[in-house]
């Protein structure tokens, strides 16, 4: 491939849009994108097989910035750190703020700073896990980069995916992100302590999630007041 074509492919890869590719390299770009997705899924499957073989439960948590992923994880860690040996992998563009918060609850944390990437992928998780002694853990949480769009492209090899939204994001937040709810097992609607003040139509949020995915379990929580945190833990079968 010529240097010009290589540059074009790299540019398109960064923009993540096949529509922008020139006609003569369109097929190549489509094939490359398919291969990358296939490789990610394959690696995710291998990771899940390995974790299952060792009896390690794994859950990944997705949600927008400020939805309450870290706050819920803190509450979960607080309740479960004596029952399970927990590893939390935290994804963020930059900083170690979330990992530092969670680490206070006696769990091991590892931070991944993705820089420009908007989601974790299976290779990030593979790199972390292959450098850990997995005999030291019974339960792994992966907190994805705060984002409701990109994480739906990448499976991470966990048993279960939990998506967290909050009522402060408005009642359309679920309806606008179908892919994520289709591939989630549990949907958490957080910050219900603010419901009276905000008047968000929480029933619509729940119905939208169930319309996209009839198998999804919807839990309404407040990480701030602890409402339904125990129910969430039960729903996660922990």
């Amino acid at each position: 491939m010529s240097d010009n074509n290589k540059r074009e492919v790299n540019r398109i890869k960064e923009l993540e849009s096949i529509n922008l590719s020139r006609e003569e390299i369109r097929d190549f770009v489509i094939e490359t994108k398919k291969e990358v997705e296939k490789d990610n899924d394959l690696l995710a499957k291998q990771l899940n097989d390995e974790l299952k073989k060792r009896g390690i439960r794994s859950i990944d948590i997705v949600g927008a910035i400020g939805a309450g992923k870290t706050a819920l994880l803190e509450k979960i860690a607080e309740r479960l750190s004596k029952k399970y040996r927990i590893l939390v992998i935290c994804g963020d563009i930059t900083t170690r703020v979330d990992a530092d918060r969670i680490e206070k609850h006696d769990v091991k944390t590892i931070q991944i700073n993705t820089g420009r990437e908007c989601a974790l992928n299976a290779y990030h998780i593979y790199q972390v896990l292959k450098n850990q002694d997995l005999d030291n853990y019974d339960l792994i949480f992966i907190e994805n980069v705060g984002n409701l769009i990109c994480p739906s492209d990448f499976k991470l090899g966990t048993d279960m995916r939990m998506t967290v939204v909050s009522i402060t994001e408005g009642e359309w937040v679920v309806e606008k992100h179908p892919m994520l709810f289709k591939m989630s097992d549990v949907a958490v609607i957080n910050k219900i302590d603010l419901l009276e003040r905000l008047g968000t139509n929480i029933d619509k949020m729940e119905n939208d999630a169930k319309n996209f995915n009839p198998h999804i379990k919807v839990i309404k929580t407040s990480a701030k007041t602890n409402e339904n945190v125990d129910l969430l833990i039960k729903t996660l079968e922990l």
Partner: peptide, 30 residues
């Protein structure tokens, strides 16, 4: 143990903890 990555020159690489960078390390794209 932890990342020490607050001093590099470049855009936004991905760091999987732990990474330790001394001063004046230049890092390219992706």
């Amino acid at each position: 143990n932890r990342n020490k990555v607050d001093n590099f020159i470049g855009d936004y690489p991905t760091f999987i903890e732990p990474v330790h960078l001394e001063d004046n390390v230049r890092i390219g794209d992706d």
